[in-house]
Design a protein around this nucleic acid. Structure first.
Length: 466
RNA sequence: GGUGAGGUGGCAGAGUGGCUAUGCGUUCGCCUGCAAAGCGAAUCUAUAGGGGUUCAAAUCCCUUCCUCACCUCCA
């Protein structure tokens, strides 16, 4: 499998012979997560599912930034402690992402639980002369690291003349960034240099080193983290260790809302809770996978509605298969085997080639369409369905999609109601028959009258449709 | 200003030199008691503008214009 590496600006092979170690920069827990977070995390969720399907051992680490000015400000505004804020939004995070059917990472380290690791990393940097103490804190000396700018393709002199850097007389160079900031505000910790709290970037260096070591396979996050966050991580980590930090830097493009950047000031942020209530998990996952991960994708009602149509086809396909009978078919198993094989190849080669989820999803939809064609022409029997099902399920599970299911009780109930309705239909009592259909549809069960039988399917309830 | 990604039919989105995907939409049809869903067919002949290379360009080169993101906290 090849992934585009931001650092070398080239596709690089992911080494799956040993453990695939992935460090994903997670969220700062000061507010609800939004659709942009969802995209990045779903991309990595599908990546790990796909790697694991092929037998790779994945170690996925995703941090929580739980010490930060925004958290402290929020705590002040609410007249409470930072701890209350972070606890609330970590809980909120898991609630959102469990609903999105994101598999849990192997570990979710928190910055506040790794203060000692950060302090020893900073100490090492000070000892090696890459960092220095000043009046306001401990700073990383950017000019000491020769490779600074290599990830974001920035030239140091241009950064300086850009003059966007905040003025701080206590720093030796305007580009230097904080490793440790002195402060008596809560939360703060003692350090060899004085009481304070860590800078933002150091936590990821410390925690990735601790749990994944050096030169791990993939370091990921949103594109907006390339500069300064990941640039600074590289500077810290490689100055400390003297060796390469991560093999592949994988960055996920931004989500825009109707073509505009999503931002608090524009008031157009879409929280995960909101999009889940409107579209549900499957639609949102398909949306996040609908564009190549390196490119921006645009959130618009039109797009999402299109995905609902596709999703309904998937649900239909599934129920056609599980409810298929032992009928005689003119379709040969061999030709089915052939198109299944084609779909599998198409799906896998799409993902192998820089994780092209839109192509892979396309291959899946094509498979669905093929099956629906068979079903509608009365050619799909149980034997064929049994053959197709494992591939269908495999793709579904790589994409992390879940077809709504019914309990055995509901199933019996549905079957009874269908029988009643069909009797009424035979007696041409259509009004009563329609009343039963309405009754069933209230449970999100849709009936499809085929020639010789009535098929039913459970549909996901989608907020916007109600 | 710098960096990166783009500009393809109503919309989304493939396609790195010739055979002009695909999906959604729309229209019609099949199916149905009616629906829904499904299926079929038709429709759409597009490649930001201007140059150039070539027998041939959406695809290569030059140029102009435009969009978006990042450069400050940000997934």
């Amino acid at each position: 499998m090849k992934i585009f590496d931001t650092l070398s600006v080239a596709e690089k092979n992911v080494d799956t012979t040993n453990q695939v170690r992935i460090y994903l920069c997670g969220v700062t827990v000061y507010d609800e997560s939004h659709i942009g977070h969802a995209r990045t995390i779903i991309i990595f969720d599908v990546l790990r599912r796909y790697l694991e399907l092929h037998g790779a051992k994945v170690n996925l680490i995703q941090n929580f930034t739980d010490v930060d000015d925004k958290i402290i400000n929020r705590a002040k505004n609410e007249n409470t402690s930072a701890d209350v804020i972070t606890t609330r939004y970590i809980k909120n995070y898991f609630s959102d992402f469990d609903r999105l059917n994101v598999k849990r990472a192997d570990l979710y380290p928190k910055a506040t639980e790794h203060i000692q690791d950060m302090i020893s990393l900073i100490s090492g940097l000070v000892e090696k002369g890459f960092a220095y103490g000043s009046k306001n804190g401990v700073y990383f000396s950017v000019l000491k690291f020769a490779g600074y700018g290599k990830l974001s393709k920035k030239k140091i002199d241009e950064l300086v003349s850009g003059a966007r850097v905040e003025v701080d007389e206590t720093k030796k160079d305007p580009l230097d960034f904080a490793l440790w900031k002195f402060s008596d505000d809560s939360p703060s910790w003692d350090s060899p240099w004085g009481k304070g709290r860590p800078g933002w970037h150091i936590e990821c260096s410390a925690m990735s080193l601790k749990y994944l070591g050096n030169d791990f396979e993939i370091h990921g996050g949103g594109r907006d983290l390339i500069f300064p966050h990941h640039e600074n991580e590289i500077a810290q980590s490689e100055s400390f260790s003297g060796i390469n930090f991560a093999k592949i830097w994988m960055h996920v493009g931004m989500v825009t809302i109707n073509g505009e950047k999503m931002s608090k000031s524009l008031g157009n942020t879409k929280s995960i809770d909101h999009v889940l209530n409107t579209w549900g998990p499957n639609i949102i996952r398909l949306f996040c996978l609908s564009g190549h991960y390196t490119k921006p994708i645009d959130y618009s009602e039109e797009m999402l509605k299109e995905i609902i149509t596709k999703w309904r086809q998937v649900e239909n396909c599934y129920y056609e298969m599980i409810l298929s009978d032992n009928l005689q078919t003119t379709e040969s198993l061999d030709s089915v085997k052939e198109f299944i094989q084609e779909s599998r190849t198409e799906f896998a080669s799409a993902l192998d080639s820089d994780f092209d989820t839109p192509l892979a999803v396309g291959a899946f939809f094509k498979l669905v369409k093929n099956i629906n064609q068979l079903a509608s022409s009365e050619k799909l029997n149980k034997e064929l369905s049994d053959y197709i099902m494992p591939t269908f399920q495999e793709m579904l599970s790589v994409l992390g999609l879940v077809i709504p299911q019914v309990t055995d009780d509901e199933k019996n109930q549905i079957t009874n109601l269908i029988n009643q309705r069909n009797e009424l239909r035979e007696q041409k009592k259509f009004q009563e028959a329609d009343a039963i259909r309405k009754q069933i549809s209230d449970k999100n069960i849709v009936l499809i009258d085929h020639k010789n039988k009535t098929l039913w399917m459970k549909q996901e309830k989608i907020g916007i449709e109600n």
